[in-house]
Design a protein around this nucleic acid. Structure first.
Lengths: 202, 202
DNA sequence: AATATACATACGAACAAACGTTAGTGCATC
DNA sequence: GATGCACTAACGTTTGTTCGTATGTATATT
């Protein structure tokens, strides 16, 4: 095969590992059909190879889901770290987090959506690990919002409810991706921020 | 079996048809595991019967999904009819629709969630039928919002974006159902309305 | 009231298809 | 000559579903 010319060992200077190619194809496929409904033979066809050949690069179907889920989890956790340790007022932190979610959803929506929808098909210990990270992330976000309520920046609302609205609202961007008459990404972001953040201000 | 005593023909005066019992069990199961991951043998066990016996009451696994999806679609379409033909100002219509979504999610969240998440596993003609109903519903809702913008009740935002935020935000109620330290349902509703509707007002 | 008939529904066994995955083989590159 | 990788073939499970049958209930006939 070697359609990419000479490759040294495993890596190629073009697009990274073949494993990475597989993970990317899996991300698209899982997003489209759902993890359970997507078969390894589907994936093989998308990659342009026989199903058995995939196992020269990966260990199992679930490993693909693991890579997807924890890549997303790390991205968001890492960003939350930097926001939390910043000196912004609480309402600005919330806005920054919302904007980050929106941008991630705009640029990597297949990745984010698969992690969000199909993480339940992980099996332990990955399942409980991911579940815990998810809960922790939401608690931290709720904490920032509570702080904003205490300082009077944010109106008196239930913080966990705000978290729940915010995190689910951005999932709607999936529909935006598929719609024909799109507004621009920038406009979308400003609209979402306008509606949600203004709705929060005291 | 006949654990419910004498039953005339098919119907029972207790809980309705056996088919209805199956659909209810399927709803819970599909919500928990996802349509694809839930097997007919799982479902049979939940109903307390062998898998083959289910087919005395239903035609296929997909029929169960159809019942669920179109029951939900009808509920929301019907409600939108009455709202649209009412004399409320646009912003009040939007609020009423939001409240209806919240209540449906509170009282029948397994039904609503399965329809929302798994309708893609329908096959034609049901698939395109449902898809069309979904698109139409959102268009109608966007229309109401546009009207509110024209009359100055609602701030200048992109109507489809508002629809997208609203409809996805209520899905967060799933997390509320599973959380331990819940606020009351009424409080949840008021919080969501406060955040989302106030964020819309001009 | 007793009996025959029709029907509804549960069951165990089995089916073909699809599933994730493994094994063994051959070719190409280093 | 060793290693990397794709192939064909096949494995054992699980999938949704069908078939034939037994049994209990409801209705009709005597």
């Amino acid at each position: 095969m070697y359609i990419w010319g000479h490759m040294a060992k495993i890596k190629s200077k073009n697009n990274g590992t073949k494993k990475e190619v597989i993970v990317e194809a899996a991300t698209r496929l899982f997003r489209e059909k759902g993890f359970k409904a997507a078969s390894m033979r589907d994936l093989a066809e998308a990659v342009g190879v026989e199903a058995a050949s995939l196992y020269n690069h990966i260990q199992s179907k679930e490993e693909l889901l693991q890579e997807i889920c924890f890549k997303v989890a790390n991205t968001f956790n890492q960003h939350l770290d930097t926001i939390e340790s910043s000196e912004l007022p609480a309402i600005r932190k919330v806005e920054a987090i919302l904007r980050f979610h929106i941008r991630q959803m705009l640029e990597h929506y297949e990745l984010v959506l698969v992690a969000d929808r199909d993480w339940k098909h992980l099996s332990d210990p990955y399942l409980s690990n991911f579940h815990n990270q998810r809960r922790t992330y939401r608690k931290r976000l709720a904490g920032i919002i509570e702080k904003g309520i205490q300082t009077g920046e944010i109106k008196q609302v239930d913080a966990p409810t705000v978290v729940l609205i915010m995190l689910h609202a951005v999932n709607g961007i999936e529909s935006w991706h598929r719609s024909r008459e799109k507004i621009s990404a920038k406009q979308l972001e400003e609209n979402m921020v306008l509606i949600m953040i203004e709705g929060l201000k005291a």
